[in-house]
Simulated assay, not measured.
Amino acid sequence: MTGKLILIGCGPGAGDLLTLRAVRRIQCADVILYDRLVGEDWREFASSDAIIKYVGKAPGDGGVQQAALNAEIAAHVAAGRTVARLKSGDPMIFGRAAEEISAVLALEAEIEIVPGVTSALAAASDSIITVTERAELQSFVVTTGRTAKADEQPDWAKIVKPGVCAAFYMGVAQAWKIQSTLMAAGVPFNAPCDWVERAGQPGMRHVSTTLSRLAHDTHANQVSNPAILLVRYPYSLAKAVSAERAIAAADSA
């Protein structure tokens, strides 16, 4: 009899942001494999008989290789165990969930996803920033500052358009590249940008700036991971910039 894989979103790390469903699944797990940013409060719900192992990775340290982790998950499930894979935020957002799901699909085992409070929304709540707003922000987009290949990046210029709030994960080291790319694409210099470190946790810190000062203020304030960057391009700002450009064009004619 095969076991079960449960991908559990633990939120940004604060114990009181664990969902009731997450707690119940942790209680019934035979094996708990947990990430770096899930906090420690979940431990009080784990069975005393559960196998508990840290499998996290920090930027640049190599950590547990994903292929080895996938194989370990599959081995436990094949042995009939219920595996709780604890992930920070929501497991389906930059959590490499697809790879771990694929590892057990061939076993025809049961798979369950337990949603969690994603870090971007925890960051918005902590800093009291609405990511959508009637007549101003009609789209909310999640993107990343770092990809699997160092020479690739998402097309941020196509993402940050009028009416969009974009949340950048893993973007601290890319602050200058994000700033220069967006400004070159015509995003206004005074578009509001907000860093939120350790969202949802007691040590949360909020650094508010604008696009033209993003790289400078990131460095000056020593922003460090884990941090979410929220970039907003409201319609009113786009209209103001358009009007200014029209006036400038008329004056130069």
Rank of each mutant, 00 (worst) to 15 (best):
L5M: 09
L7Y: 06
V172Q: 07
D49M: 11
R21M: 11
A240Y: 03
I178L: 12
L86T: 02
A148K: 13
S212P: 00
F94D: 00
G186Q: 01
G62C: 13
G15F: 14
R134T: 11
I51P: 02
D61W: 04
I113A: 03
V231S: 06
I93T: 02
W42S: 08
R146P: 01
A78F: 05
A175D: 08
A74E: 02
R245W: 07
V131L: 10
H216K: 10
A240H: 12
E133T: 14
G63S: 06
T143A: 05
S88L: 02
T147Q: 15
D151L: 04
G95R: 01
L69S: 05
D30W: 03
P154C: 10
R85P: 06
V77M: 03
A150D: 10
A84K: 06
A124V: 08
E108K: 13
S47H: 10
P188Q: 05
C193P: 06
I93E: 01
R205W: 12
D217Q: 08
F140H: 13
E99K: 00
E133A: 11
A84N: 04
A250Y: 00
I6H: 08
G62P: 12
V141K: 07
F45E: 13
I6K: 10
F94T: 01
C165E: 10
A220L: 04
A135K: 15
T82A: 06
V38H: 10
F45T: 05
K239N: 12
A191Y: 06
D126P: 12
M183N: 04
P188V: 06
T130S: 15
V55I: 15
G11A: 09
D217V: 05
V117T: 11
Q201P: 14
A185L: 11
T143C: 07
W42I: 09
A123E: 09
D126R: 12
A109P: 04
A148T: 12
E152T: 11
L121K: 05
T82D: 00
N70H: 11
Q201S: 14
W156M: 10
A50S: 14
N70D: 15
P12H: 09
A22E: 01
I73W: 06
M1W: 00
A175M: 10
W156A: 06
A84W: 04
T147F: 09
D155V: 14
A150S: 15
V164M: 04
L69T: 03
S224K: 15
A157T: 15
L86R: 02
Q66E: 12
A157R: 13
I101T: 05
S127T: 03
V23P: 03
E152D: 08
R198F: 13
V187F: 13
D90P: 07
F168Q: 02
K4Q: 14
K149G: 02
S88W: 00
A124D: 09
T19K: 00
A166T: 13
R245S: 07
